[in-house]
Design a protein around this nucleic acid. Structure first.
Lengths: 120, 120
DNA sequence: AGAATAGTCATCCATAAGGGTAACAATAAG
DNA sequence: CTTATTGTTACCCTTATGGATGACTATTCT
C-alpha cells in the first residue's frame, strides 16, 4: 500500500486543475474526442491537448486514434491510489485530534527538561 | 456541493508533493513544530517552511507561534472537499463504463450521417 | 550580556504550469 | 485534386514549484 507513492504526485497534480477535473467529469459520461472535450472551455486546442497529455501521463485517462480524431476515455481504477491515501489519513487521524491541547500544554510546561538527549 | 471548486485546486495541489503528504501524515500523530516536521527530510529549513506555508494556504493545516517555535496542526475537515469530489466522480461513472466500446463502434459506423446538426 | 536555538526573509536557479499564436500534418469530404 | 476538419508541433510568455544559500530576527538558556 505504499507502491503508489510516486504516482500520487502525478495523480493529485492532475486533479489540481479545474480544466482537467472538468475533462474527467465529462469523460464519466463516456469517451469523447479532443474537440468535444474542448467545447466547454475557452482556451485554444493546443492548450487543451496539453491537459489531455498530462491526464494521460498521470494514468487517469487513455487515448486512442480513430481516423483523424483522438478518442479519450477514463481509466476508472486510476483514482484508487488517491482514495487509499485519503483513507489512510483518516485511519491515522483516528482519535488523535484531541491530543492537541495536551501536547501544547506539554510543550509549555515541561519544555526540554526531561529530554536532554533530544538535539537537532 | 460545488462551493469547493476553487479550493480543490489548492487542496489537490497541496497533496501533489511527497514532502507535503509526509508532513500531513506526521501531523496525524499530533501537532509538531517546524523543526520536528523537518527531521525526516533532507532539505533545508527554509524550503520546508515554504511547504508548510503552502499547506497552510490550502487550508489543510494551521499554525501558531508558541515562544520561538511554530506549532503546526491538522485541520481535520479540510480534506472533505477532495473526498466529495472523488465520490461525485464515482457517482457519475456509475454503470457508464460499459458504453465505451459501443460508443467507439458508433463513431466508426454511423459517423456524421445521422447528425447533420452537429457542428464545431 | 552573550551564546545557542528556532524560525524567517531575501535571493537565486532550474524546471514545470498554464496560457497564447502560427504553422504543419493527416485524414475525410467534395 | 482541393478543401475542410481535427489534431499536433513548435515557440513564446508569465507565473509557480521545489530546491539551495546567506543573512537576519526573535526567543531562550547560561
Amino acid at each position: 500500500m505504499d507502491d503508489y507513492s510516486e504516482n500520487l504526485d502525478l495523480l493529485f497534480g492532475a486533479l489540481s486543475d479545474p480544466t482537467r477535473r472538468g475533462i474527467l467529469s465529462r469523460l464519466c459520461q463516456g469517451p469523447a474526442s479532443v474537440g468535444e472535450l474542448k467545447e466547454p472551455f475557452l482556451m485554444a486546442l493546443p492548450n487543451l491537448l496539453k491537459h489531455i497529455r498530462l491526464l494521460e501521463n498521470s494514468g487517469l485517462i487513455e487515448t486512442q486514434k480513430y481516423g483523424r480524431m483522438r478518442i479519450c476515455s477514463l481509466k476508472p481504477d486510476a483514482l484508487i491510489p488517491t482514495e487509499k491515501w485519503l483513507e489512510e489519513q483518516h485511519r491515522l487521524m483516528e482519535g488523535r485530534l484531541d491530543r492537541m491541547e495536551a501536547y501544547i500544554e506539554t510543550l509549555k510546561t515541561t519544555k526540554a527538561k526531561e529530554n536532554p538527549d533530544e538535539q537537532t
